[in-house]
Design a protein around this nucleic acid. Sequence first.
DNA 1: GCCGTTTTCGGCCCGACTGTTTTCAGTCG
Length: 584
Amino acid sequence: MTETGPRSPTNREIADALEELGDLYEIDGATIHRIVAYRNGARTVREASRSVAQLALAGEATALPGIGPTLQEKILALTTTGEIPALVKLRAKFPPGLVEMTKVPGLGPKRARRLYEELGLDSLEALRTAAEAGRISELKGFGATAERALLEAVAAYAAAGPAQRVGLSRALAVGEELLAEIRALTVTERAELAGSARRMSETVKDLDIVATATDPAALAAAVASLPQVQAASTPGANAVRLRTHSGMNVDVRIVEPDQFGNVLQHLTGSREHNMALRDFAVRRGMHVSEYGVLDDATGVTHRCSTEAEVYALLGMDYIEPELREDRGELEAALAHTLPQLITATDLRGDLHCHTTASDGTATIEEMARAAIEAGYEYLAITDHSQSMGFGAGVSVDALRRQIERVRDLDASLEGFTLLVGSEVNVLPDGGLDYPDEVLAELDWVVASVHTSFRMASEAMTARIVRAIEHPLVDCIGHLSGRKILQRPPYELDLEAVLDAAARTGTLLEINANPDRRDLSELHARAAAAAGIPLVINCDAHRTGGFEVVRYGVATARRAGLTPAQIANTRGWRDLAAQRSRQTA
DNA sequence: GCCGTTTTCGGCCCGACTGTTTTCAGTCG
């Protein structure tokens, strides 16, 4: 390797630096709009599919939304020198403990800075000690109540850290059960899930439900006494805040029917989507809030019973909740160019599942029956290859016997195609652990990384590109290797991988397992933009395993994908004819 | 600090809640 300057910072490292600059400028007392500009820039960088360091070197980072000359210059400094002078200066001015103090709920940058300057508090521990000694309530603007609240907040934060998020599947299990209970109440008229759960985000902090009722007070009382509820409070006459026995916090809002659309839109978010929507509205002389849409010209506040009316008042098409992240959906809604998003019923087959031959719990026949039951026309049996540890792998001899069994069973199934395949391990050098002549006997080959995750980016990229270039590989399984809330993705040059897949015609999987959702929505969007066909696979390990398809579809929808961009919306013969490898 | 159907300056989403307030600042979602 040649001697070069410092390694180019990753998008995540750049985003973290901009985020930290925003936090420090906020403590420094900068105007809120400047702080917001740093945070917007950080988000853009975090979500970018190309190397922002490389863009900045080429002077093209300003083409990204929210990145102007100043932010590009700071990114350039980080890229070429490894540091940003303003960040170095601010870090010297404010201790890291002060930034952490602002993360305590209820304590913001303004009051934290006063505590630092007037009492010298520079850590959570110092804050706790001062509060216990009654020193905080002596300051002007701080009373005994504030001091007590601060003490409690510090204790809670120190014990539990920042608010915990849970995976979507866990949140929906709680939210949909609660929603069904609420809908079953006689006083309930309408009830919908809102918030990030409705947008099908990867993780969820708490749940929101919006309802209308013939008798709001009766609904509130009934909700508070549902069997799932461990504790409930009623902050207002038309709201219930509850905690379930399963540990989820849930806000239930009971609204007038003619404002249901306004409130549902407001509480569905995202925050970024709503801010951009309102910003757009203001430019048109309108003001959007949860209570209605105010038109400056007439002074009339329009109340909306549906979300579609809210968007229509601004000249926009209805925007599906999964798209509401301010990633271009507002512009598309205005131009009437929103994509027709894929739905689960568009999928005609699944190309990744396991049986008792590897680490699944059901037989080939049971999995085939389950796929038919789930409405599929075809299924590929793709057990793990021979190097899979813990006895979960399939030897070459065993695979040959499996091929015969699958062929026999396929012949007996009317109107359903059972395919024989494999999920082949990609070895650390990018080779596969079945000989080519064996792979050539298979209908479908998924290649996945299951070992040696902790490789340097260059080596991991070369490893996966080699697998992509293998002429008998049809598809790469769960590309990034991440497990949501459990394991970060491995280091990878996404651009290089997408280039290779586009060049060779290798498909990429959206693994629907809710702990994976891999490709991620952003990677899926980038892959589709590169013209790479994607496959939504359940990776089922049991007969009930096809239920997770909703999470794969949700990821595709959040990526803005249409049925045409997903290969398994086609019949098997059509799909097989389109791929790079032609079956014999 | 960014941005443009108010284009190179002057704006920048909206409302609730809390505490210490007598008209509001800070914080949150």
